[in-house]
Every structure is written in structure tokens, then in C-alpha cells.
Design a protein around this nucleic acid. Sequence first.
DNA 1: TATGTTAGTCCATATTCAGGACTTACATCG
DNA 2: CGATGTAAGTCCTGAATATGGACTAACATA
Lengths: 164, 164
Amino acid sequence: MKRDQLSDQQCSVARSSAVLGDPWTLTLLSDCFLGVRRFEEFQERLKVSRTTLTSRLKRLEEHGILVQCQYEQRPPRFEYRLTQKGKDLFPVVSTLLAWGDKYYWEDATPPIIRTHKHCGHDFQAYTACSECGEPLELKDVEARTRPDNDRYPPVERGPFKRGS
Amino acid sequence: MKRDQLSDQQCSVARSSAVLGDPWTLTLLSDCFLGVRRFEEFQERLKVSRTTLTSRLKRLEEHGILVQCQYEQRPPRFEYRLTQKGKDLFPVVSTLLAWGDKYYWEDATPPIIRTHKHCGHDFQAYTACSECGEPLELKDVEARTRPDNDRYPPVERGPFKRGS
DNA sequence: TATGTTAGTCCATATTCAGGACTTACATCG
DNA sequence: CGATGTAAGTCCTGAATATGGACTAACATA
């Protein structure tokens, strides 16, 4: 299967991955959340080739995650901004960052520190249940596929069982 | 820059992306959380080429996210299981899934439904602040880079400002 | 006029991927 | 005994994608 066919799968992770699933896109989005908006700035920070950057920005635009805005008339200049759909990726990037901080910096201070203005503390993101607000743990989650989902049938052994 | 050099960057998202940032890896992990463990089963569900699957499994193993366990002596057969580091990716996959459910299924029933055994309800994941427990919102977060982080200097315009 | 800036495009080479055939090491069926 | 089946891969070839650097357009500034 090719990457763009992933968009047609009966699985939200597969569809999301078709758009976000490459190393530059995720890092690029992380930069968006830090306020980066311009081509040259992305290129300098990511150190990705200009062709690849162009294609990633285009894909994110096609999928409605970024919009190109003109910020100068003459000469015509554009920048990229997050749409609401893009802003809604904030939790994804935040949890990815939290995981990276945990496993790639361990006890050291991570390279980017974030403060929650609401409570005034430096924080990490964690994930919780929308219904009861408790932190989400793998062992408390039971997944089932919708009956008509023949593309991703349930696993025989049953999800989340048998130790490691 | 090449993908594996991302692992050396002063940015947790970049490092995480170096390992997870491709469409198959994320979908593969999602299947791991559904209980999938065997080569043939991954291959059949993901419909990815066998060579690519082999390389992804190898990478996840090298990074300590999966371990290969022998589940049968004769003939020797192996399966892949999540380590603790791998299980800690559950929030990442969960938020990615929540985003996909929101934007690719809108009001329809998403293809995979998850129940929180703790409270008994079907749920979606949301992300919160580790210090005060409030749901995390982009506008409440202020990010700063560690002073000695010359690789990812702060953005001039300041993070998270100026509307869209 | 010369140089600089921003947002790209173009091109040659290098790397990676898809899809299918093949392999190894056994178990089972007739 | 020989044929077929199964799981977990490897090997191969052609196709697609990425890299890095040069180049371009459309202006602004010195």
C-alpha cells in the first residue's frame, strides 16, 4: 500500500498518519506552536531541504492544517498560520513532547520549558478520560471495532491482555 | 539533514519524530495497543510491504519501544511486545486518534470505540496540565527555550501571539 | 548599479519503498 | 513418505521520494 491510500482506511490513526506521519511534519508543527510562520525560518530551524519543506507545507495546507496568508503586498510575501484544525493538534504535539522529555532527557532539564499561565507552573502534559477526568491508563481501556469495520477486525487474543 | 540526525537535535519533538515519524510506525503502534503482536498479523492489517515492516519493527526494537519474545520453541517463532517506553506512547496514540476521530469522522461513529473501564463510559482522550489538572489550551501555554539551547533559539515574535 | 531578502523552483544524485518471489524450519495431512 | 501449510523473515528490481545546491522572481535598500 502507498502512503496516500492510508487516508481511506477505517482507522483514525491511519488517516492522521497519512498527513502527519513523517519526521519533518511533526517537528514543523512543533515550531508552528512556538510561533514560527515563515518559509525561511522553518528552513533554518529544521535544516530540511527546501523542496521537502515546500511539499510538507503544501500537504498541511491541502489538509486544512495551515493556511497561507499574505503579510506584505510588495513584494508579495506569505506566511503560514495554523487553522483551528491545526491548533487542535496541540495535544498531540504536547504529549509527544512529554514522551520525548521523559525518555531523551530523563532527569536533565529538557531543551524547551513550558509554563501554564493558568496556574503559573512549569508543566508536562498528561492525557485523561473525557468522561471522568481520570488520567488515562492503558490497562483501563477496552477497545472494540465498530461491527461493520471489516478492515480492522478485532484481535483474537483480545486487546490489552497478557502482560507485557 | 537526514532523518537519523534528527535524533541529535535539542528538541524532544525532533528526537521523538526521528523514531516515530513515519506513517507505518504510528499505525503499527496503534495496532500494538489493540493487542497485535505478530509479523504476519501486522502485515495483513497494515498492508505494508514486508521489507518496510521488517525495518520498522527493527527500529522500534532498537529504540527500546518493542521487544522481540520467543513464543514457540520449534519451529522458533517470535512476537513483538511493548516495553514500558512503548506503553508510554499510549497518550500519544490516543490523542492522535481523538484528533482523527474529530476531523475524519465528525458526527459519525468512529471505526474504533474505546471504553474506560474505570468509569464505564465510551470516551475520547484530552490533554491536561500536570500541575493543576485543567485541560490544556494553546493560549494558556508559554514556551521558552533553555538559555543554552542555541539550536532552537526563541522566536522573535514571541510564541503563541497575534491571532491565528 | 550592486547587493540583499523572501519564497520558492529546478536538477542530478542518493536513498527508500512496493510488491512479489524465494527461504528456513518445522508441523500436519493423506 | 511426499505434498502442502505456516510464520517470519530475506532478496531483488523498478518506482517514488529526498537531499543539497544552484537558480529565479520581485521587489527594497545603500
